[in-house]
């Protein structure tokens, strides 16, 4: 059966591969043509020299990082607590965490604008800081399905009930247990979820545009209407960025707790071994 050369599978794979790769090559080639008559990185230079690019990418990076932080602070203790103490609630929590897949961003932000508008009991959209916060919280919501799944899978791998009991029998308080036993063990899972969150929210367009924030997504769209070569350069860079995030996510998702060849993102290295 295996002896004949798999002609059809090979052709299928080649066809699919070219569908995936040709747009990237075309975009890359296009991005090099900014200077007439020669190939070069002028478009890239132009992007990096733009003040607007730098401000918007900085804004979006900060917003994404804060979203990751808040997401972790909300999701990790919840996932842990649900597994440990109230397993009956797990289906409910899981269902809620999957809801953002059902609610399109445009609907979500519409609700925000109406619910937190100027006539509201909590008029977040009337101040810049409030709107920034709403954007960040929106990103937390959008990334919740991925974050929850990553953390919950991470918790499923370790036996948290036994670990918690072991830590408590050694005299650790619960907060200390979470900080020094549970968190380090699911850190890889959290980081893996974080990279996915980052790749979703960095170039996000709908929320940022409708909340009227100076983020990277709206800048990209504007650039696409005004320029020809810079958008291609940005498309290539954002593909590379997405690739980087996914690879790092994979690396962390498959890493076993306790493996040590990555920079530690939290402090307290000594306590972990003693706890």
């Amino acid at each position: 059966m295996k002896k004949s050369f798999p002609v059809v599978p090979v052709l299928t794979a080649l066809f699919a591969a070219s569908f995936f790769v040709v747009p990237l090559i075309a975009t890359f080639y296009f991005s090099l043509k900014m200077t007439r008559g020669e190939l070069g990185f002028a478009a890239y230079a132009s992007v990096f020299n733009s003040a607007e690019f730098l401000t918007t990418i900085t804004y979006s990076t900060i917003a994404s990082l804060v979203a990751i932080l808040i997401g972790a602070v909300i999701i990790v203790p919840t996932a842990y607590w649900v597994r440990l103490k109230v397993p009956r609630l797990r289906p409910v929590v899981e269902f809620i965490s999957l809801l953002p897949l059902v609610v399109p961003p445009v609907v979500l932000v519409f609700g925000y604008i109406r619910l937190f508008g100027s006539n509201s009991w909590l008029p977040l959209t009337t101040t810049t800081a409030g709107t920034d916060m709403l954007l960040v919280l929106g990103y937390v919501v959008l990334s919740m399905p991925y974050m929850f799944r990553a953390v919950d899978n991470g918790l499923a791998v370790i036996d948290i009930a036994t670990l918690t009991e072991a830590a408590e029998s050694l005299g650790a308080s619960r907060l200390r247990t979470i900080a020094t036993v549970i968190f380090p063990n699911v850190r890889a899972a959290i980081i893996s979820g974080a990279f996915l969150t980052f790749s979703i929210s960095l170039g996000e367009f709908v929320l940022a545009s409708l909340l009227n924030r100076p983020a990277f997504g709206p800048y990209l769209v504007q650039l696409g209407q005004d320029r020809a070569y810079e958008p291609a350069a940005l498309a290539i860079m954002s593909f590379g960025f997405t690739w980087g995030c996914m690879v790092l996510m994979q690396v962390f998702a498959t890493r076993k707790p306790g493996q040590r060849w990555f920079p530690r993102l939290t402090s307290r290295p000594a306590q972990r071994t003693t706890a």
């Binding site: 991005s31 940005l234 593909f239």
Partner: peptide, 17 residues
């Protein structure tokens, strides 16, 4: 990667193609 490569950059890539 590609399943997460949506939105504005994807549109740019296809315009260039």
């Amino acid at each position: 990667v590609a399943s997460n490569f949506a939105g504005v950059p994807l549109a740019f890539a296809f315009i260039a193609t």
